[in-house]
């Protein structure tokens, strides 16, 4: 197994993801860590609520990881995403990629987060002091 896909309701751990992609032949490890930001378009965000269509979220994340192992052979990949109520600063997603050299790890990690945001059925609602909004729902 070279990929590790997790959809979790508990806090995410960067060490777990880094350790998954470490190996003696992997000279480049790239981690992307997405956290909950305290503002959006000038408005203060109090928290984010994430939800997922779980079986498909896992299968779509697995597709991303499988594509990476095909496009960048010999890579190791971990994608962990959290769901539920998250506070400012909490980690929403970790993507870790380990490859022989750094260029492939950077490229694969960028591919993973960009594709995740387009295809994985996970939704987030921003909670403000005076209301809430589903992110990206409207143009």
């Amino acid at each position: 197994m070279t990929i590790d896909i997790q959809l979790l309701t508990t806090p995410l751990d960067t060490n777990v993801c880094q350790q998954w992609v470490e190996a003696p032949d992997k000279g480049g490890l790239v981690l992307f860590v997405g956290t909950v930001r305290n503002h959006t378009q000038g408005k203060e965000v109090l928290r984010l609520d994430f939800e997922a269509y779980e079986p498909m979220a896992i299968s779509e994340m697995r597709k991303i990881a499988m594509t990476i192992t095909e496009r960048w052979p010999e890579s190791r990949v971990a994608i962990h995403h959290r769901v539920g109520q998250l506070a400012i600063g909490d980690i929403a997603v970790i993507i870790a990629v380990g490859t022989a050299h750094r260029a492939a790890a950077f490229a694969a990690c960028q591919y993973a987060i960009d594709t995740l945001k387009q295809t994985v059925p996970i939704w987030k609602k921003e909670i403000f002091a005076d209301g809430e909004v589903w992110v990206a729902a409207h143009p």
Partner: peptide
């Protein structure tokens, strides 16, 4: 059934059908 479907795809009784509004993971 947990896969994106194109518009021509037929729907059968017993399929798991889910509406996917704009996603916003990460």
């Amino acid at each position: 059934n947990a896969e994106y479907a194109n518009e021509n795809q037929p729907i059968s009784a017993g399929d798991e059908i889910v509406i996917i509004p704009p996603v916003a993971g990460g």
